[in-house]
Amino acid sequence: MLPRLMRFADVLVGERGEGTGLLSRALHCMLAEQYRYQVGTALDVWAFGEIYRTWLHELRGHPNPVAQAKIADAGFEDLFYQEIDGYLDTPVVGFLSGLPAQQRLTLLLVYGEGFDHEDAGRVLDVGTDIIAARLVRVSAALADRLSARPPAPAAAIVETLYPEGLRG
């Protein structure tokens, strides 16, 4: 379970060092406040929720929470294991790093963890309709980006404007 918790924290803050620190603080809180754990709750759902709440609590105490929530592309790229052929899905990585944390976590919980919408909603403290709406919005945006044709080079455009038959 520890690698899954680490992934959650890292994806949340967008960088491994910060993620490790957040997870460490959240685990200490969980240990100190384990009486709040309700029997019957899935341990992973509860633990992910606690990490998210710790991050939110710390963010609210920050003078500029919006700037604080933004992540750096370089640190985020380092999260992806690239040993196999050094492959990095750059368009997807770039897309994920540009998303707000809540949307990134929604994708992680549903597509990475295989949670249903209810459990994902429990972790992020939102309803299933919000989870579904986020998935549609983000999936559609990524599908658009991945299927977009690259812009035509300038030379090709000039060639279309002045076809052979019309040149002096």
Binding site: M6, D10, V11, Q82, D89, V92
Partner: peptide
């Protein structure tokens, strides 16, 4: 394709954590 590539991306992060 978007779904599959997201799954693969999250799997790649987990592999690094493991």
């Amino acid at each position: 394709q978007a779904h599959n590539r997201l799954e693969a991306a999250f799997e790649a992060i987990l592999a690094g954590e493991e």
